[in-house]
Design a protein around this nucleic acid. Sequence first.
DNA 1: CTACAATCATGAGGCAATTTCATTATTTTA
DNA 2: TAAAATAATGAAATTGCCTCATGATTGTAG
Lengths: 308, 308
Amino acid sequence: MMQSQLELRHLKTLLALAECGSVSQAAKRVFLTQSALSHQLKALEEAYGLALFERKTQPLRFTPAGERLLALARDVAARVTQAERDLARLREGEAGELRIAVECHTCFDWLMPAMDAFRQHWPAVELDIVSGFHADPVGLLLTRRADLAICSEAEPQDGVVYQPLFAYEMVLIMAKDHPLAAKPVWQAGDLADETLIHYPVPDVMLDLVRKVLKPAGVNPARRTSELTVAIIQLVASRRGVAAMPFWAVKPYLDRGYIASARIGDAGLQSELYAALRQDDAELAYMHDFLHTVREQSFATLPGLSVLA
Amino acid sequence: MMQSQLELRHLKTLLALAECGSVSQAAKRVFLTQSALSHQLKALEEAYGLALFERKTQPLRFTPAGERLLALARDVAARVTQAERDLARLREGEAGELRIAVECHTCFDWLMPAMDAFRQHWPAVELDIVSGFHADPVGLLLTRRADLAICSEAEPQDGVVYQPLFAYEMVLIMAKDHPLAAKPVWQAGDLADETLIHYPVPDVMLDLVRKVLKPAGVNPARRTSELTVAIIQLVASRRGVAAMPFWAVKPYLDRGYIASARIGDAGLQSELYAALRQDDAELAYMHDFLHTVREQSFATLPGLSVLA
DNA sequence: CTACAATCATGAGGCAATTTCATTATTTTA
DNA sequence: TAAAATAATGAAATTGCCTCATGATTGTAG
């Protein structure tokens, strides 16, 4: 007994498990196999001679013992993170500059909370948003008008490195009484006679157009709006359909304002990357910002998946 | 960079290092080799890109970065210990009985603080001391009049297990103006014409008599006293010499009240073990008590060494 | 109710991280 | 200044963790 010593790795596993509710999902979160986590948890339970979870349920439930260890994990993880931030500041100093270029409207939903959290930890880093929806946010990086760019593809470019943030599914939303509202999966052709409502940005920045409609030669009517809530309202009022991140529309779906459908049989997967200048790639506050974004986003947005 | 993830193992190493002041001593404390710790610390420093210690000094000093990690270690270690205690209570319940048989007078010096700390953590465990200085404390165990016995030797016995506590050196103390006060090492023969002052216990419980004088056939005059301070006073008043644990007399040596000498060329090493009934050997509160004793003792008594 | 999909458990085997060993370098002490 | 103690280093060895492959179990759809 007590053969395997408790390690931070175990606590991180517990945190992932609590967030994901299943061993296999948690495994993806910590970049290990389901098997690895299963072994790890079994070892933990044997070490303490206590059941830590009830596995027969979905999502799995923690026993009181499991809850106690989970509380330790939350507590310790926060302290470790804080200590490592302090070390990074000792190494690189407190100050820096972080101007963020954003090309997607919905990004603000997760960007704002992340920036708020980051500001607490790095008060001396100058945070800024480079607004205006540029077709080429990476260009801003190289011309030093921004230090970090959010983008949906990692096109290799000299002097630029890409850090994966997360992936999610874009769903099609429509009025609840739309004739095709019951159809669980829409194909490109189903959109031919619809009005597509989207943000006022170039087509290359619209995943639905770029990855689905254009390849299929489908070209529906268009209408634009700046605000997410406005788009939702237009959709609910049968003025058209829109493609939105699942996490952005889930609250409206839950309340029954609108209906949603998968786009194509496999669904339309979107990815988000952060682009940085190679020189900045090792800066601690950059890493910490990206870490904060992932942590905040996974904790608050439903349906996210990890991105290698 | 950041190749090796921080683990609790590293934090434990830091704690040992802070307590011992040297890598090789710390290595003994955590039951690893000096080399292992050296590699470990180097990896830590490389992972954070920071020097954590100044090695050119004795005892070694922590840099600000090292201090920060050390603070994390103290903080986290305490929380982990507390959580594991809670788990143990979930597993085995809060209550229990812990009657301690003690055969050595000085033991009370470290036993009392340890019992105080333990009482905080296990309020429902009935703590008691079985007093009277029995020649056979292990007998009390088997007759169930005690649950734990402190003893200086681990004589194998059926149904009894021994847990090492710590080891220390017994030194000879004498008046500062004693003719042999400058002699750094005393041999058995040097005691022939002295008066030996000791606690009123059987000879088998006096390491000096049992391990040194008897084998050499030396039989000095005797005098007894119950109290450590009284013995110190008698020694300082040139009424005789005494053998005492180094940690018990260090304060008096530092203040110059008495002088001390090593007993025999290798010194007289004493060891302390806790004896338990085999049935009780897995009880969490027993383990925790032993752990508390070691922790408290190493933290407060000078010159202790670990015991396999 | 059965079949399929998803999740979890388990044992064997591979591999990488950590430890030990052996040695050299450095610092402290006598 | 020599000797003793402590620390660093590289290579070898061990340990332990992870992955793979597979079987068991649970949940779900037809």
